[in-house]
Design a protein around this nucleic acid. Structure first.
Length: 287
DNA sequence: GCGGCGT
């Protein structure tokens, strides 16, 4: 279902898009609609909040669904001290989502704001639902199911004819060619007990033309070592694999893209504090 | 029978 939207005239012509999955969730007096949809550009999750008189909608690119799940997991864990829960932002190519908790006489809530270049900001507000955060937990569980369906469905990836479409209303990333098995081994219908990716201040996803592109590979040489950088993804999301190859030895670290900015900042920090020791420009050459 | 936000 489309959550009772007027259908006609909704921006971006989402009316013609194929609906892959639809769920509704009632929390207190509010009704939330989740619609996983697909069009020629890829997939997106439309989340609408409907109150008696008002409706507001955010559009979540499909590659961000897991992060939404993960972030909700964080707030569920923090529901005992919501005032201590840190605000989060999810930075994507063409939009940013802000997550903030709040408190008023109605109770605790999580505000999710979507800011994009060509649209006005839109916001939904999710009640915690109870002292135990049942509303947030239910929201998270729906996100887990949608993520699962999205990741496991085997539609061929779309080829985007031209990547410079910045005028589109609902830009969604290309469907990434997914590898990996079900969401979690064992019973596939439960969310993992604890999200592994800890999202902090910001998450940077690479430009969408790189997402899911297994061919992206870079090498640098430092002295006798080679370092390989490869983008990949699995059922947990996208990651950067960095491999050090020296002689016949190879070892890798897997960095979820949610940590890329932190990683970058950390490297930058050490570049700064070791400046005087490394006067000469780096000897590494990109290939 | 709710209704929060406000870039």
């Amino acid at each position: 279902m489309d959550g009772g939207s007027g259908g006609v005239g909704m921006g971006g012509g989402g009316g013609g898009d194929v609906e892959l999955m639809s769920k509704t969730l009632q929390v207190e007096h509010k009704l939330f609609y989740f619609d996983l949809k697909e069009n020629s550009r890829g997939r997106y999750l439309k989340i609408s909040e409907k109150t008696s008189a008002t409706r507001s909608t955010i559009i979540v690119p499909s590659n961000a669904i897991y992060y939404f799940f993960d972030i909700f997991g964080y707030y569920v864990e923090a529901v005992d001290q919501p005032q201590d829960a840190v605000s989060k932002e999810l930075q994507l190519d063409n939009k940013v989502f802000y997550f903030d908790t709040g408190d008023n006489k109605r109770g605790t809530f999580l505000k999710i704001s979507e800011a994009s270049l060509n649209r006005n900001r839109s916001t939904i507000i999710v009640p915690a639902g109870s002292a135990q955060g049942e509303g947030w937990a239910a929201f998270r569980d729906i996100l887990a199911k949608i993520h699962e369906v999205n990741e496991s469905s085997s539609t061929a990836p779309y080829i985007i004819p031209n990547q410079q479409g910045s005028e589109s209303n609902e830009q969604v990333p290309r469907l990434s060619d997914d590898v990996g098995a079900g969401f979690i081994s064992g019973h596939g219908n439960q969310h993992p007990s604890r999200p592994e990716i800890k999202v902090d201040r910001s998450i940077d996803l690479p430009p969408r033309e790189d997402l899911g592109n297994m061919g992206v590979s870079k090498v640098i040489r430092v002295d006798q070592k080679r370092f390989f950088f490869d983008l990949g993804n699995n059922n947990r999301g996208h990651y950067l694999r960095m491999s050090e190859v020296a002689g016949t030895d190879r070892s890798s670290i897997i960095l979820p893209l949610s940590g890329l900015t932190q990683f970058h900042e950390m490297v930058g920090h050490f570049v700064e504090i070791t400046k005087d020791r490394n006067e000469e420009p780096p000897s590494a050459k990109a290939e």
